[in-house]
């Protein structure tokens, strides 16, 4: 299959290769870090160690990789659809809306299976993102910073509603858990929904060209015969589903969807056919680094990966913001 980038695939391939080469040792290292020691030499002969590996370490590492990749992909899709560099599910009210949905289903049907809760969260996230898209339509696209700003305030608004309901319903702890993304509770049997998020990210890859064209605007999309509304709808559904899946299983992880696509875009642009695999790999790798750091910094206690990434991500975002003018 000759793709659009046929004359020059060397550079993107190099980045992808680099990401993959870094990911493998990181993942192996992640398998070895945890509260209990996992001796390398007797690993294969020790049934206890193998059990730890299968029940806890491998699921955890897989969960981190899937989450990081899916959130980064969701972020880049959101940025192309809103046509703004500075948005992600955490700055468009998507995550907060998902939490509201989750809160509602927890209050109304506490015993509902996790899939039902996830679907409720996804439905709410879809509605919340839709409202944001309408809001964003009121703002001309050249008001670049107004869009993330309104998104942040809109998210804060939804969060205030959620906090109110949570306080009155006595569910404040739940909110705390959903708000800080962490992987310490991940065991085999408790994270498998994340494969769905990974699958969605993969699905998005098959629509990579459509998303890239949608990122050029409605007029260009229509001119090229793209069904713009459908691409928009597919994108929003993907982003909402991914966000809800991640919140239900590990909690909110802000900034991944913002920082990773921006860094990758600086290196290799926004042709998703080329860059989406690198975005996914970089998101997975960065989140894994943060998770490993969170496990090591205060060993044997843990700092949530979301917190570690939050500090790093906010710093990078500030750099992008303030360096924007200087860079032209």
């Amino acid at each position: 299959m000759a793709d659009l980038a046929a004359p020059n695939t060397a550079a993107p391939r190099r980045w992808l290769l680099l990401a993959a080469v870094l990911l493998v040792p990181l993942a192996l290292f992640s398998l070895l870090v945890g509260a209990g020691p996992l001796p390398l030499d007797t690993l294969l002969s020790d049934p206890q160690a193998l059990r730890v590996l299968a029940v806890s370490r491998i699921p955890r590492t897989a969960a981190v990789l899937l989450t990081g990749a899916a959130m980064a992909v969701a972020g880049v899709i959101m940025q192309l659809l809103v046509r703004n560099r500075f948005v992600e599910p955490g700055t468009t009210g998507t995550s907060e809306a998902a939490m509201l949905g989750l809160l509602a289903v927890t209050l109304l049907a506490p015993g509902a299976p996790i899939l039902v809760k996830m679907l409720a969260a996804a439905g709410a996230a879809l509605a919340g993102t839709g409202v944001f898209m309408l809001l964003a339509r009121c703002i001309p696209p050249h008001q670049v910073l107004l869009i993330p700003l309104s998104g942040l305030v809109y998210g804060g608004l939804l969060m205030a509603v959620a906090t109110f309901i949570a306080i009155e319903g006595g569910l404040l702890q739940y909110l705390g858990v959903w708000m800080s993304g962490e992987f310490s509770g991940i065991l085999a049997g408790r994270y498998e929904l994340l494969w769905l998020a990974g699958g969605l990210a993969l699905l998005a890859y098959f629509a990579a060209d459509q998303f890239t064209i949608a990122g050029l605007g409605r007029d260009v999309s229509l001119n090229l015969g793209l069904r713009y509304g459908q691409v928009l709808g597919f994108g929003i559904i993907t982003v909402s589903l991914v966000s809800s899946l991640v919140i239900v299983t590990v909690g909110m992880l802000p900034f991944i969807g913002l920082v990773v696509p921006n860094l990758v875009s600086r290196l290799m642009g926004d042709n998703l056919r080329e860059s989406l695999p690198v975005v996914a790999a970089a998101g997975a790798g960065l989140l894994l680094v943060c998770d490993i750091l969170g496990r090591l910094l205060r060993y044997p206690y843990e700092i949530p990966a979301g917190t570690v990434f939050g500090i790093f991500g906010a710093a990078v975002f500030l750099y992008l913001l303030l360096g924007r003018r200087a860079g032209g």
Binding site: L149, P254, A315, F317
Partner: peptide, 13 residues
């Protein structure tokens, strides 16, 4: 706008 956004992110950080 830049000032506000930077402030908001600073607050998050």
């Amino acid at each position: 706008q830049l000032m506000v956004l930077a402030g908001v992110v600073l607050g998050v950080m």
